[in-house]
């Protein structure tokens, strides 16, 4: 039995195995025959609303031929004071794999330590969201056929966005050429950069100006307004750090733009039908990637 809790637990080989498996899953989705039913139950436990991630795991379970059951925050017994450990112990008696989303950091690790079935982390506060990172890496691989040597720009709120920290880790592991671009106040923490530098010695450039001239993949995230004490400051940074059509036109023709969604107004208005915009395709790859994750942790 294996869990998927943190990118930090994975070797490059592990990540490659997930990505290859996702490709197989994507092919199986294109075939017209329905999935072979399996006698497996996937339990989704969402203690924090995240409709998109929840639906995507649910769809992945169904597409695998498993059944899905669900426990969500307000209806659960946590309102009555039951600990997460107890809830997890009980649910692991009902299902073959647990998918957990929780607002507190380390919740998934705790769950994995007490569960008798595999646990998949679907986001633990500001800490980890490993399936998102696998989806991001898969998207880059599908669009560009490689990750190593690609110029990838991470642009936006690098200080608060968990997706960006995790992606930096994944990209470093695969030897991408990384540009970190954010307002000064929202730079990636030194600690995170130091960790990947010590582990993978990647090429990382830090800047506060958007310049896409050498950019193969532009990965944008929103300013995380809810993390600001000063809402005026958040609005100001959001205004200041919007990507313009002129900036995009300076990029190579085959630039791909990704975004973990939801987006606010980081990208030009009416941009969604532009051939560079790949974020809806990226979101759709969430299903085969999560199928691969569920399949692997349950033991193929």
């Amino acid at each position: 039995m294996s869990d998927l809790i943190s990118m930090r637990d994975l070797s490059r080989n592990d990540v490659e195995a997930y990505l290859r498996h996702a490709e197989k899953m994507e092919k199986s989705l294109r075939s017209s025959s329905p999935p072979k039913p399996r006698n497996k139950i996937v339990a989704t436990m969402f203690f924090e609303p995240s409709t998109r991630t929840h639906m995507s795991f649910w769809a992945a379970a169904e597409r695998l031929g498993c059944r899905a059951i669900s426990l969500s925050g307000d209806k659960s017994s946590s309102a009555k004071g039951e600990t997460l450990s107890d809830t997890v112990r009980i649910m692991s008696g009902y299902a073959d794999v647990l998918v957990l989303r929780h607002p507190l950091e380390g919740a998934a690790r705790l769950a994995a330590d007490v569960s008798s079935v595999p646990v998949v982390n679907a986001g633990d506060g500001g800490n980890q969201h490993p399936t998102q990172t696998l989806i991001d890496l898969y998207s880059i691989l599908r669009l560009k056929k490689k990750i190593s040597g690609l110029s990838v720009h991470l642009v936006g709120d690098l200080r608060h966005a968990r997706a960006m920290r995790s992606l930096l880790y994944g990209l470093s592991m695969f030897g991408a050429k990384i540009t970190l671009c954010s307002p000064k106040a929202l730079a990636m923490s030194d600690e995170v950069v130091r960790e990947v530098q010590e582990k993978f010695s990647p090429s990382i450039r830090t800047t506060h100006e958007i310049n896409l001239r050498d950019c193969d993949v532009l990965y944008v995230c929103r300013i995380q307004k809810e993390r600001f004490e000063d809402q005026y400051e958040a609005a100001r940074l959001q205004d200041e750090f919007r990507i313009t059509k002129e900036q995009i036109s300076a990029a190579p023709d085959d630039l791909a733009i990704l975004h973990p969604l939801p987006k606010i107004d980081e990208l030009p208005a009416d941009y969604d039908s532009d051939p560079h915009a790949k974020y809806f395709q990226q979101a759709s790859w969430g299903v085969p990637v999560r199928m691969a994750v569920l399949d692997r942790v349950m033991g193929v």
Partner: peptide
């Protein structure tokens, strides 16, 4: 580094 939240 915390085993749970992974912070240093």
């Amino acid at each position: 580094r915390c085993h749970h939240c992974e912070r240093l």
